[in-house]
Nucleic acid binder design. Sequence first.
DNA 1: AGCACA
Length: 277
Amino acid sequence: MAHQQPYEPYYLHQPVEYGFSDRNGINTLFVSGLPDDVKAREIHNLFRRRPGFDSCQLKYTGRGNQVVAFATFVNHQSAMAALHSLNGVKFDPQTSSVLHIELARSNSRRKRKPGSGAYVVIDKRTKAADDAQENSSDDGESESDELSGGNKPDSGGNADLLIPQSGETVGDSEHAVATENEHTEKTVDGVSPCSTLFIANLGPNCTEDEMKQVLSQYPGFKALKVRARGGMPVAFADFEEIEQATKAMEALQGSWLQSSDRGGMHIEYARSKMRKS
DNA sequence: AGCACA
């Protein structure tokens, strides 16, 4: 009974885009701005909690030390949601690496087959040095060439996106990486987990009822408050447990309500828990 | 980017 299969979620309806029709089919994100010592596992951890995540690839471009990644989602919608929530996030405070995320030029060719690894590494560097990277949770299909051929991010077009703008020299990476900082434990929005969610990017006509219908599908949902504060409405949704709030957030992140007109919902943990009243 | 209620 704990499993409530939500009846057809709104976000399954393909939101017909306004301008760029060809990008609607893209469900893969192109990620740059990564530190050169990034691990595939880190990329996977970055995206794995995003709703609709399917799989990702880390790719050593062979162009200097630059590393890029591709994250594939079940649909364009969830890819966009992940894009919006992670783009611009500081990936490594030590090096001030900031994530650059955009839609990939084309989708990753290969869907992950069930039970196989959720991430994979493609290494285009000269096989000399440290190519002994962790090779994913399952390396069953090391089709590096095929995978890279599917995306071609390194064919010149995206090079300009990879430039760490200020002062981050790729050259002196030797002394910069002294410690193993595997603890990339950043709260993605800079907000710590809370059983109350803050929901923004709602349409001007969003109603409390509309939101309740959606939210009440998720276990632990307790209360909702919508307020307009003059401008666009925002909402606060309270749950019994943080974990339940998290589940709802992950499931609903980026999804559209009928009243949505500016994109899907942006959901974060609220800065403070809803007052019980 | 936008976080209230007490």
